[in-house]
């Protein structure tokens, strides 16, 4: 009896406040009714925001919780996108029930192989090698004709997935809901991982790997598994991106795309639950509106945003808001 009481007492320390669940339901409900008040292209933009949220959340696993600064995360995103693109281009395969499992397989295999190479080294060299691996895939996909539609760079005109349902036809709105489902599932799964013993161990390793080794943690294995798991979610995001965007290009592998989730995570708040989502929201919509005004200035504005956050909101917007609330509450 006493033991059971103790156990629940400890669990209560960790369990979520009811308010958290209310917040989740309200947020998902809001996202679910939103497309009814939006034009088609806006629904596509919203889907893009949710897809980049998944991409950023996957980066949060390795960078936020694991403290590993990878400059090549887009390698996995590109693997997902090109799985869709190449199956369509060379096999005319669009059946989701084939594409999706293969996306999982290639993301995991790519994650396992590339992460193994990247983790041969640590520190600054990890940064360099991840950068190099991403650029390598970028260069290969650029130069090998097999990776490109005839007469262009990239693979164009990728259709929405064939769900194998007779009489079912996609609209922008229904695809948005499809993405929303994967977004919610990814959010729950990634937060579950973050709060699992594995996720806690990852945080410990971020804070001090020597102590963690002495406590019995296999630091290399933790980092490796974190990279592979995050590759899976990044690849899945890449798959959804290919459908939503209807084409993939070599840049999807490159640093131009690796830096987006990094920016989103830092902007929103590393190692926080909703930080990557807030970051994705800001970056995706800022990109859209800024590009309408002045397309060539977008990278400049992105850079300024980044510098401003590093200088004034280190820890990210979510952390800054939590601090503000605490200050207001006294």
């Amino acid at each position: 009896m006493a033991e059971a009481a103790q156990a629940t007492a400890v669990r209560r320390v960790r369990s979520r406040p009811a308010l958290w669940w209310v917040g989740l339901v309200v947020a998902v409900g809001f996202l679910a009714v939103l497309p009814w008040f939006m034009k088609g292209f806006m629904q596509t933009l919203m889907a893009r925001f949710l897809i980049f949220s998944i991409f950023a959340m996957s980066y949060n696993i390795i960078f936020g919780y694991g403290g590993m600064l990878s400059l090549g995360h887009a390698a996995f995103f590109g693997i997902g996108g090109y799985t869709v693109g190449l199956l369509f281009l060379h096999g005319d395969i669009t059946l989701f029930w084939i594409v999706a499992p293969l996306t999982v397989v290639f993301s995991l295999a790519g994650g396992a192989a590339l992460s193994f190479l990247a983790l041969r080294v640590t520190g600054l060299y990890f940064l360099l090698i991840t950068f190099g691996l991403g650029q390598l895939l970028y260069s290969l996909s650029w130069n090998i004709r097999w990776f490109n539609s005839a007469g262009m760079q990239g693979i164009a005109a990728i259709p929405f997935p064939d769900m194998g349902l007779p009489g079912f036809a996609w609209t922008n709105r229904s695809f948005y809901y499809f993405v929303l489902v994967w977004f919610v599932l990814s959010y729950l799964a990634i937060n579950r991982i973050a709060e699992s013993p594995f996720g806690r161990g990852l945080v410990g390793i971020r804070e001090g790997e020597n102590r963690m080794k002495a406590l019995g943690y296999d630091v290399w294995l933790f980092r490796y598994l974190a990279l592979v798991v995050s590759a899976l979610f990044a690849g899945w995001a890449g798959m959804l991106f290919a459908y939503n965007n209807s084409f993939v290009y070599p840049v999807n592998f490159s640093f131009d795309y690796s830096w987006l989730p990094m920016l989103m995570v830092i902007l929103g708040g590393a190692a926080t639950r909703i930080g990557p989502i807030v970051g994705a929201l800001i970056v995706v919509f800022a990109e859209f509106y800024v590009s309408q005004l002045t397309k060539e200035r977008w990278p400049l504005i992105l850079g300024i945003l980044f510098v401003a956050v590093i200088m004034y909101f280190r820890g990210g917007i979510v952390v800054a808001l939590v601090r503000l609330r605490k200050r207001l509450e006294g």
């Binding site: 960790r14 369990s15 709060e195 161990g201 406590l215 019995g216 933790f222 798991v229």
Partner: peptide, 21 residues
């Protein structure tokens, strides 16, 4: 972290850390 270090469950990604009675 100390208590989990020697347990097999330290690699568990699914159950929450506090859930282990």
């Amino acid at each position: 972290l100390v208590m989990h270090g020697l347990e097999r469950s330290r690699l568990d990604m699914v159950r929450t850390a506090g859930g282990y009675a």
